[in-house]
Write a protein that binds this DNA or RNA. Structure first.
Lengths: 241, 241
DNA sequence: AGTATAGGCGAACTGTTGTTCGGTGTCAAG
DNA sequence: CTTGACACCGAACAACAGTTCGCCTATACT
């Protein structure tokens, strides 16, 4: 069997199949639900018929320092070794995530993003005017990073002017409308002086804004704060070939 | 530790003292413990003597879209960020969300793709073998291009060696396992002589294979057919930021 | 005054969940 | 062969935790 788990550790491989399954399940569960599973939920998912066996293996994993438990508390499990994004996946952020049963998250595709025009934003309240026949695209729920789906929308990129952000003609960018952002966020900015929209990582350097391409072979550009209008934050990119 | 609410204060301030205390406590508790508190833990922390009152306020907060609850599950609380909406506007009813019966397309994320190794392929039988709780990723159905979901899988890209295909470190490529392809397909190829895996557009020019980067600023490379092993066809790319 | 509403209280009830314990099978060292 | 460790099973138990219900208090509106 050849699932490559991104714990390069042979430590992980040394675990029993059940222990591996348990760790993987817990990580996924926390990701999905926002809280850890119960012993019985683990047992059911990993085909372990007895709660005591789950308990046994859980304690084993505590000894091996894969997780921590709070005695006599329901769902009192914490993953300890959390690197990368695999089995022991950490809450990369706070486990603040909407969840509605695992169904797909649908986001309206509202137009195109063209380098020579500001981003076409839907009305502030477009959520209410949502038309079920609108062009919708499924996106992984994680991509929403906890934002409410109603404030997220998708745009198709036209032209190859975003190539320095590793975004190709025809790609779909999933965005959340917002006027501000934190340093390092990938945002769509409208540069009035250049009449250009571009996607770049945003860094406020006080007297100037540094817009850093995502493509390391390319250099950043610098603009005056007055010539830099944030239009939305990019949550993700989807490319279909 | 204070739980930072990234919302305009007015919305938060509009809540009752107890509701504010509850929200703050839940955020801090999750930060501290790794899982949400029970009703009784909230009550004790916020000086609310009756569990029913905590329950009451919790449901109030659900209505106001500050959090979500899983019915009849211990600690079944998730914090969510409130949706936009102007001041004093009634909570909007989830516009763009979830077709429940809709069939999300779930694809197993089975490992990583590293430039220096052949693509780690799941076993031929992974379709029925894999554990439904494995790490799955939702992809737009269209991305599958009609292929059976059981022969499709996803890999996380490690390193920036795919940058000439406009694929970044951390991107997820959705692939179909196959050994042949048509001209122009974007495929993962293993180049034995270079011990490299790379994603390129494939063109058979008879005596040689042309591997064309997707990035127009980069030049194609040419390889001998014997030094070119197709591992799978790329159906799409998903990037989460 | 009468009444509607929001918020609160406490107790009882029910289902959930962690824990414990007697017992089974396997395997390798003594 | 015996022993002990390891992993496992099933069942029962007790504590935990979400829900429900009758009743209370204050405020504002008719």
């Amino acid at each position: 069997m050849t699932y490559e788990l991104d714990e390069p550790d042979s430590l992980f491989e040394a675990l029993s199949e059940r222990q591996k399954a348990i760790l993987i399940f817990i990580g996924g569960f926390i990701d999905r639900e926002g809280f850890p599973p119960t012993i019985r939920e683990i047992g059911e998912a990993c085909d372990i018929p007895s709660t005591s066996v789950v308990n046994y293996n859980l304690n084993k994993l505590v000894d091996l320092q894969w997780l921590e438990r709070s005695k006599e508390k329901s769902r009192g499990i914490r993953l300890v070794r959390r690197s990368g994004g695999g089995a022991g996946r950490p809450p990369r952020e706070r486990p603040v995530r909407a969840y509605d049963g695992g169904s797909a998250t649908l986001v309206p595709r509202v137009g195109r993003i063209v380098a020579s025009k500001p981003v076409m934003l839907p009305g502030a309240d477009f959520g209410q005017y949502y038309d079920p026949d609108m062009d919708l695209i499924e996106v992984p729920r994680e991509m929403l990073r906890g934002f409410d789906p109603s404030e997220v929308f998708a745009l198709e990129v036209q032209g190859d002017s975003m190539i320095d952000a590793l975004i190709d003609d025809g790609d779909i960018v999933v965005m959340r409308k917002q006027q501000t952002c934190a340093d390092g966020d990938l945002v769509a900015v409208w540069l009035p002086q250049d009449s250009t929209t571009t996607l770049k990582a945003f860094y406020d350097e006080g007297t100037r804004i540094r817009l850093q391409p995502r493509n390391p072979t390319m250099d950043p550009i610098y603009v005056h704060p007055n010539n830099c209008q944030i239009q939305g934050k990019v949550l993700g990119v989807v490319r279909m070939l």
